[in-house]
Design a protein around this nucleic acid. Structure first.
Lengths: 207, 207, 207, 207
DNA sequence: CACTAAGCGAGACGGTACGTCTTGTCTTCAT
DNA sequence: ATGAAGACAAGACGTACCGTCTCGCTTAGTG
């Protein structure tokens, strides 16, 4: 006997949208602690079974809710590439900081992290659908800079990315320090330093 | 009406120890999802009220359980200072990585992080009792190196600390990459680079 | 808006038979508690709507299932009339007892009673399609005996029927006593006594 | 490991009474179909677990509710014994008929029967706590009559009781005939006839 | 040395949410 | 248009925990 796999072609988009919207609204008003499947179903005007049919866990609903926030039609992520690495990195890192300070992003994302910490499957889904595409885009931008000679040829792009963003997430999760543009800029400067940006790049060797 | 403040002098250390042990055992066997106050009380052979009397939340119990793991009598944290900064950092960063790979540490710590993400009070308590002392010790070691001229005089010690450890926590939480000594060493090299440490180790050990 | 009356001429007898068979099988294996429209539909390989289209309730399906058990083509019920009232009554009453002891009859019938107790419509349908025809046949046999002078002329045939069969149903429903031939015979003797039948069987068979 | 037997000495009589009252009220207003544990708990202002802790099934709650209806402090049942058997039986049988016609008795009792038909444990509990004591009282009255010479010495008292009451239950369950005093009286007359009441009893041989 | 005032084990209580199951309606697709 | 299939809104099921609340029982410390 096979598992009762739901037929996605019959899926009600009305229900899907209402569920994700309800999840976002509830997590914004009550936090992750106050988020329940029952609450989502009630607010969305949906049967609980409709949620259980399409999502394996509460965290998975939140993941979709977060994704629905930032997506059009599953857009490919692309970062700015003006040729000015410092400027482009500042743009992106500052944007990251701003996002985490925006309550309408922050609430569901924090809920998502709370769920991920104790749910390896959800973590993998997050990596596949969110982290990996974003990380790839970041590394594409860095590779472009390396190819242009703005970064040392042996630069470890993955590590560079982690040095740019991990401290932000750390501060965000545990509130261990201010999350502002000054911090963002400091991270950018550090990254450029690490990558031994050649003196040829306009101002990158300054100070 | 005043709150019913329990009289700490009458506190049963038998109960306290049993509760923390039960919490550790249960989180190790069932994960944070399967951790309940009722379960802890039952396994510890303790009334639920005894837990509620002394801890404000399940997360607070876990925090104490984690602390009890690493402490003797509330030892002051101190990092090695052999004079060789690179070697000392490798020791500490590798030890951090090893700890997060040790299941008996990993399980309660992950549980603690899960609780903290949605509990600002618990996060503050963690900072005060765990993170701040450890961070201070780390910065003391870095300051010692800076004072000895192994780091540039204008080095931001806090940022340096974050660059050393935030990527580790990031990989640990989201399993975004291997957590091994190679990674630890790469972080150390990067930190030394950032702080414009002399390229050769000799210069450091020569002092 | 008129009710959507299904067109009986298009009814699939394959579906009907499969549904009734599935109902019987399921009630036999799981009891009435474990009987569900969904279960019947699944086992019969039929859409739920096909059941809802043709039966007003689960109990109605069970009623049809019970009827299908005992019927050929909606046979007219007729009781034996050998001229020996005592013998004929013993035959019928013993048969009733035997039927209620036969698990393949008992299970769906018990399910039917369970449904009827809280469903007046179903009770009426049962009376019309099962109880009334059977009761009529019983009273026909008793009337024949009265006409033959074996029962007092003023005998209340309906009451006599109730005295013969109600105690059986009572014992069956609440398991308040053994349901065996001895009990059946005792009921017959009592009925004959009530109706002031001659004490000797001879008088009856002599006619 | 033993089952978690609740400690009856700590049982809240407030909760018990509220639950039984709620069950009675709900069954009266919605019938057995509309009776749910959740509904009872909600109306009684009680947690569901409090019901599950003390009763094995919904039917068991209804049984207690029915019992609470008719009881003072678990009174021993006793039937009238004026010496006039016909009059006493009429009193009792008419009272039975009246009870089944009283909606405030009828509703929970019908619910109880619905539950019993598919629950052998409940049926046994009903027999032990309701049917057996009542039946014993009835048979005590009949024995008294037999001892007084108003019934034949070889009268089967149990059968006599069944002949008096089973037809009433039958009519009540399936609505197969009127449930009134005339019917009650007819059953009494029949019973007296069956038991070959000696002519010596005042009026019992009349007609 | 009694007295009393905690802490303690235990667990019943009113609740909330869980994840599952079933109901009866509705829609889609194939025949 | 019927039938198989099954998604849907609704809501009850029985379980697990929550945090609060009594209960007796020990166990100090005080008068």
């Amino acid at each position: 006997m096979s598992a009762p796999v739901p037929d996605a072609s019959r899926r009600s988009s009305r229900a899907r949208d209402a569920i994700l919207a309800a999840a976002r609204e509830l997590v914004a008003s009550d936090g992750y602690r106050g988020l329940s499947i029952e609450g989502i179903a009630a607010r969305a005007g949906v049967g609980k079974q409709t949620i259980y049919r399409w999502w394996p866990s509460k965290g998975a609903v939140v993941l979709d809710a977060v994704l629905a926030l930032s997506e059009g039609p599953d857009a490919e992520v692309e970062l700015p590439d003006t040729g000015d690495l410092r400027a482009d990195l500042r743009t992106v890192v500052r944007a990251t900081v701003d996002e985490l300070a925006d309550p309408s992003f922050e609430a569901p994302l924090r809920a998502l992290y709370a769920a991920m910490i104790t749910d390896a499957d959800l973590t993998a889904a997050y990596r596949r659908r969110v982290a990996d595409p974003v990380d790839s885009a970041k590394e594409r931008r860095l590779r472009s800079a390396r190819d242009a000679g703005h970064l040392a040829p042996d630069t470890d792009l993955g590590l560079l990315r982690e040095l740019l963003f991990a401290p932000i997430v750390q501060r965000w999760l545990l509130a261990t320090g201010p999350l502002d543009h000054a911090f963002a800029d400091a991270l950018v400067e550090n990254a450029l330093l690490v990558a031994r940006a050649p003196a040829s790049t306009e101002a990158e060797t300054a100070s």
